[in-house]
Every structure is written in structure tokens, then in C-alpha cells.
Design a protein around this nucleic acid. Structure first.
Lengths: 94, 94
DNA sequence: TAAATAAGTTTATAATATAAACCAAACTTA
DNA sequence: TAAGTTTGGTTTATATTATAAACTTATTTA
């Protein structure tokens, strides 16, 4: 009847992060922060969770002399996102 | 960019309850319990929240001698559900 | 060189979801 | 008819989660 919703994706901020990465496939921390309107702290935590789950990969480099955190979605992340969308449809009849 | 998601609806069980009531427009507690697979306790709590928000109305009657709790969606609930679906679309590009 | 800004991380708190425990009434059956 | 079981829930306790506040480190800029 109702398919279970991946709790990792069923979170407003994490879903927004994944949604961004699905379409841009690479994004820097400040960009994600701006687009989602999240605080840096919250964003940092949620990125860690997605990264720990293998849904995104995080590269920490430098841009000039400043640190620069780049996020990319992984194949596992793409798959999980698509599965989540499918599951959601069982609730929304769309 | 990303529309905020009504936290009352962005919950797996409450969304399932609303989804059922959108299509059946009247359902008894045991039926919702069976369809959602929720425990009675959890269901009771979540029904209370939806009811307190005015998204559903709860009628407590009797069926023969046994208590019978009937739930219906309200116009405010319908509207909130539709708004939630619209907001979700900003995350899912569907 | 002092203050402000950038880019994060860590930690504390508040909110939430969930199950476990509980309750009351009605049925079943020994 | 007394004991146990089932139905239909509610209340409460716990564990998880989300979030912001506080902090760190390095870099600009006045």
C-alpha cells in the first residue's frame, strides 16, 4: 500500500541538498547554503549524514587559500533519490 | 527555490493517514491502522496532531457496543495536503 | 594590528516519532 | 461464572532527529 520512505531522504534539508546535486552534480558548500537557506551548522551535519550513507561524496580542497568543500551525488545517491520519489508517489497519487 | 514543507504533513505516518482520507474521505481507526501498518499508540498520537491542526475531524461513536473512532479530512486538511504536494514538487522536479 | 568576514565543525537543546505500557469494556470458553 | 483474550484505544517514556548556537581557524580589510 504505502511504501516506506527512506528516512535519510525524508528530511527537508537533506532532500533539498540531494535535489540540488541531482541537477547540478557538483556544488560548493556556500552555494548549497545559499540555495537552501540553511545555517552552516545544520548544513554541515546533514552533508555528513548523506556522505556517511554513501549518497554523496565530499571533496575538501582549497580555492586559492580558502577551504572549499565540494559535494557530488553518487550512483547510490541517485538510485536512492529515485526510489524515494517512487515511494512518495504511493502517498500522493501523482 | 525550495518551498518550505509543512512539518505536520512531512511525516511518513501522518502523510499516509492524510493520503487515505483524501481518497476515502471517511475511515475508521482500525482500518487506518491496518492500511498504514502503524501501532495503535503511534496512530492515536498522530491522529491527535492532525486533529489539533484542524486537518482532520475525529468523531467518537459506537459500533454496537464497541467504541468506534471515525476520521474525516477537513477542507483545511485538503488544502494543506495539496499545498504540500505542490511544495514537494519543487524538490522532485516532477 | 585590530576588527570583520569566510568557511566550516562541534555541541547543546528542543522537537519528533515511536513503541511500550497501560486501561476499560466486551467477548469467549472451561 | 470466573479467567483469560480480544478490541479499541490512550498515556507515557525513550530514542532519534533536526536545528541553532557557540566555537575554531584562517584570511581579508580598515
Amino acid at each position: 500500500m504505502f511504501k516506506p520512505l527512506d528516512p535519510l531522504l525524508h528530511s527537508e534539508l537533506r532532500l533539498a541538498i540531494m535535489s540540488l546535486l541531482i541537477s547540478t552534480d557538483e556544488a560548493e558548500f556556500p552555494f548549497i547554503k545559499e540555495q537552501t537557506g540553511a545555517t552552516a551548522g545544520n548544513l554541515s551535519v546533514q552533508i555528513d549524514k548523506l556522505s556517511a550513507a554513501g549518497y554523496i561524496e565530499v571533496e575538501k580542497t582549497f580555492k586559492g587559500k580558502r577551504p572549499c568543500t565540494i559535494c557530488r551525488i553518487t550512483p547510490a545517491g541517485q538510485q536512492a533519490f529515485e526510489a524515494y520519489v517512487e515511494a512518495l508517489k504511493s502517498y500522493l497519487q501523482i
